[in-house]
Amino acid sequence: MKILVCISCVPDTTSKISFTDNNTKFNSSGIQYIIGPYDEYALSRAIELKEAHGGTVTVIHVGLADNEPIIRKALAIGADDAIRINAHPHDAWFVANEIAAVAASENYDLILTGRESIDFNGGLVHSMLGELLNLPSLSPVMKLDINGKMALVAREIEGGKEYIEIALPFVAGCQEPIAEWKIPNMRGIMSAKTKPLKVVEPSVHKINTQTLSYELPPAKGACKFIDPSTPEQLIELLKTEAKVL
């Protein structure tokens, strides 16, 4: 089985977000970058599937050379090889078009992404890839088992889940609990250094959005504390002051 996993490079989930240059640039000083958490679930499941059914796991990333440490981490976790498309990931449409161009001739059995990237929270790349490659796409996928040429998938829906049967190949946007995150071991980290990482130049160059500026939410006012012995006062305040009851 031939699996492609798309990984984004995003600020760690504990990052404090701020902007510079009159709110037109993301302030990356002090920011630690990680593989998107959803993408890491996708990668972990891909490796489990490879272990169970044989095959290869390739990771693909659209980004500049600074992001190679996260690609090496994906290789250390267990991917066999990597492709970096050498371009700034301008928007989801750009990313999906570049990945589709590379994937089109490779006949992957499964293309996995995260359900969304945690920077721009687009949640779009999986369905764009599906449409561009003329493949079915499903998201958010929380369970994925393979049985021959068929896959059994659980998809989260509001208030529950649905179970789906679908033939390979297809695209899945993944989320937990599809797999446990894998911690790279020493052998993985050593071998990652020599695993193939191919750099290709972008070829499609499709862009149809421009980010103009950023804003932070207004600062929160002070918290109003209520005496724990009279919690009914809270209900009163929610009714008369906040007017939400």
Binding site: A96, N121, H126, M128, E131, S139, E158, G173, N208
Partner: peptide, 23 residues
């Protein structure tokens, strides 16, 4: 915005050759 509509939106963007913003 919902899990259904996120999955619709990306496909629709390609079909209509549209720019898209979510959320």
């Amino acid at each position: 915005r919902s899990s259904l509509c996120d999955s619709i939106a990306g496909r629709l963007a390609k079909k209509l050759d549209a720019s898209i913003a979510t959320g």
